[in-house]
Design a protein around this nucleic acid. Sequence first.
RNA 1: GGGCGAUUAGCUCAGUUGGCUAGAGCGCCUCGCUUACACCGAGGAUGUCGGGGGUUCAAGUCCCUCAUCGCCCACCA
Length: 1113
Amino acid sequence: MESNQAELAKAYDAQSIQKEVTQMWDAEKLWHAEPDERPREKRYSIVIPPPNVTGALHLGHAINNTLQDILIRYHRMLGDNTVWLPGTDHAGIATQTVVDKRLQAEGKPALKEYKACEAKGGNGREQFLQKVGEWKTEYEARILGQLRAMGCSCDWDRTAFTMDEPRSKAVREAFFQLFKAGLIYRGKRLVNWDPVTQTALADDEVEMEEVDGSFYYLKYPVYEQSGTGYQPVNDEHGQVAHATVATTRPETMLGDTAVAINPKDPRAASLRGKFVTLPIVDRIVPIIEDEYVVLPIAHGGDENDAKAKFSSGFLKVTPAHDPNDYILGQKYNLPMINVMAPDASISLDHGWGALEPHQKDNETLKRYIGCNRELARASVVEFFKANGLLEKIVPYRHSVGHSYRSHAPIEPYLSDQWYCKVTDPRMAGAANASLAPDQRSSPSESSMGVPPMAQQQEHERDAHDTKNDGLRFFPERHAKTFESWHNNIRDWCISRQLWWGHRIPVWSKTFAFPNDIETDAMEMVYEWAGRASIVFTPKGEWNPRNWNFEDSNFEEYDPKDWNEQIAGEFECFVCIDTDPIYMAETVIAQDLEKAGFTRDPDVLDTWFSSALWPLSTLGWPENDAKAVDYWNPTSVLATGRDIITLWVSRMVMFNQFLENRLPFQTVYINPTIQDGQGQRMSKSLGNGVDPMDIIESHGADAMRFTLASMATQTQDVKLPVDLIDPHTGETFEPKFITTPAGHVVAAPIQEHKGKKCISSYGAASGAAKPTPEMPVAKNTSSKFDLGRFFCNKLWNAGRFVLMQISGQSSVGSGQDHATAAHRPLPTAHFVDESKWSTIDRWILSRLARTVQACNEAINSYRFDNYAKAAYDFVWRDFCDWYLEASKPAMKDPNRREETARILATCMDVSLRLMHPMIPFITEKLWWALRDTNAPSGIDDRFPTFASKKPRVMTAPFPIFDDRMDTLTSGGAERVVERLQEIVGAIRNVRNDNKVDQKKRVNVTLVCESAICHHLENNREFIEGLALCTLDAVGPDAKEPANSTKTTAAGVTVFVVGVIDAGAAEKRKAELTKQIAGMRTKLSNEGYVAKAPPKVVEETRAMLAAAEAELAKL
RNA sequence: GGGCGAUUAGCUCAGUUGGCUAGAGCGCCUCGCUUACACCGAGGAUGUCGGGGGUUCAAGUCCCUCAUCGCCCACCA
């Protein structure tokens, strides 16, 4: 008890408060929750989003963690059974380049050596995974450590990691269910291939970057069929005719299987049925006609079409190396010739050689084999040039997909991958159908429509909980992004050729028909039918015959009957049920491997496991995990805009499919924090601000408060980044430079006060090397001063209140100023309203309205309004006016008891009100308030909890209700506003005339008799706050000599002893202008006739007042 | 190319269904360390609300248009 008060004598120290309060939270585990009997509407849950893919923690995470913690703490204080599950995703350490760098830094073998080891039959993969597992621990500690430092009240007993066994089991179970339902398939498709890390990427893992390239115009000789052979075609000049194609990737011509022309092209008719010969490979390919080909301007193309300017009218078709060509290839049934190895070098070994065995003897081609893309491109161009087949090269700037992992250009690459059929109505359709009706576009606008199953689900959901009618976005406009994503969605490539991740739980083996039908392995397949989902498909294609145990007709699928469907080889894919009837998952896997089945070497896309987060963190699919049914659907997901398609969509689809309900009821999209130039914070630009640095420099509460106040409804907020001089600790604005890519970044080397330091861009880009003389400067932002100033103010106001209500004049000062008025306060149990002044009624009214504003703000996810309302009350109303007004009242024995009660009440209520936003400081002040045992609370209108609840974290959040509403007083607010204006006017006169701040001046107020008593009753307030003595107040008060006249709130104010001739003139001019404006308005017939009478009346009243004032002057 | 958003004080941003003299914080200027607070207090200056048009008695707010900037998606002929 003593210590809490003694410490309050000290200045605000965020660090020590954080430390002390954190210890309490750790010891008492107030954040822990277990399922109980509380009804559904009293359950509240959030699952924390896994951090982003680079593992860089910056304010983008801090803002949504802060906002989520506000919601969690708010609901906990409302008495909800509240849980927030912290977790980490593996993505942050999954990038191969990061892994490789790290391995080398630690003196370990490089990734390729682990791979070589594995290839030779060693346990390279296992060794590698073990190594990465160690880093994970470190990485996880960093992320969870940041959350703790921020004050996030996660349930630390329920931390989850995507790769741990409960989460892994969830992945296997989800995969199994999707597989069984036919929503997972294997396909030979064109994928986004990263040749450096040699893995496929999802569409959204591809980043577009502008690069300077060229258009190469290649001439292909035109041929026609003659008899059994082909002959060159001559043009009108007797020369060999050519079809010129324009391409940015000449090397892919090795895989061309057609040349296309638009049928509208005037040249098309004469080329119909003809062919071209591809140089180098000597392949004769057809000229096909398709409207897709852009007409060149010279042949009727659209002049406004950028492509028409470059088009030659002929399009080379390379189905294996271009997504659009792939579509054409399918349409015209063209061969797909893959000419590249996985590392994007030219190769005959990945399909090409099998299709065209003769190419192995092609001497011209030999020099291209093994070349990488860049070299092959140069060589091909060189060949065309040397043979007179290169028409021209035109420079062209265009955007090219790059891998977000390696930043290498993406190669569209034909390969076998696993896909999740998200285009199925049970997935994308269900996701759109799960939107709340008022956030959904009409069915006619949505190309997906609402599948019958989703309608069914909707019906069940309604029955389940009528309050929640579907997924809801805040701000609402984001629902549109979500919806259109699903309307245009493509199947999701879920396999990745990596090692660190969830391995695809599918075993496969090739069988030959009919010879292998009677083998032991096949007999086992029959036996496993009950514990696995099994697919038979002709080798190399996906044309499955599902064979599930539950399917009573599985006899129909007897492979013996397949002779017409499957000739030759077929493949058997087995996906094991995680909850088999009578045999463990691992035993089946072992049996499979013994029987010659091999597990798929690929791992799943990281978002596959992330998509299960709202289920897997709660213990799904374990039957005894009560938490799943209790807290899923979770209440809210707070996240960034860019995540809507990556993660939100997938969580909705998976949760809907697997559990037939939403993963969360609300998606709150927080603004994206950008740097001062409007650029996203990124590691490579070095413009990210580390929340831990801010916590160190400003405190966690200050950071949280500032972030909350930045959470407006806009989609981006700019946060100018400053640097901290490592030599002096001072903050300064960096000098900026523009990178060739057009980014504005802090110059690598910065100078402040004659000493140099390195910006984080300099360090990240490697442009400057840190030395002891030239260390790296941390990033910060002066924006966080707002929060720090506020916390400091609150702390000091708290000290003052505690001092007052505990009857001490100066806590810990050692001096004894005690007088009669300073003796300890008696404990009053009854509120004596008769002793309340107008100011008392006003502050309680303001407090009630602040509670109301905060309630509304949080419920509508307007965190900025929440912060603003709290700020305005604490600083503007309470500190600026009420605290000052309370000083004389506390010296008056007749009033001090009630005043102390009101001071304590304001503190009690506002601490509870602000705790979700600034948890540390409010907790600390609460303990001190509690220890005073001072009477607080205004009966059941502002019930007090200071003496009843030891922790503010579990005290009730103030809720505005009818009883509290009885304390709102428009009358008191109007009177105090008037008083404030008068005080302001007097201060104004004093300041304008340089009156000594300590000098008390004499003032006379002339007012209407109607308001005279208000002024008289609050004489003390005016005299105290404007440091004056009121000589006379009333309608008949005389103008004193030697005084300056001013007007405030309809009251004429004379300040004696100050002469300011200019003031009256200034005021006259102001009034004249106002009067003119209002007269114009009122002389407008339309205004008087059409504007609401109330508005007109107000204008008239104001005009009258202004005219009266002017007349007096 | 499709979608979303922004443009209000020197800077960062509020401004809810159109209606009092357009606000806040920081910064700037003047004065003041008065026992809650100098991370403070009192006061002050600063705005053609991006440009143009329209609807209306009335537009920062609604509509059209132009300009600039940003983000997401699509696109490598």
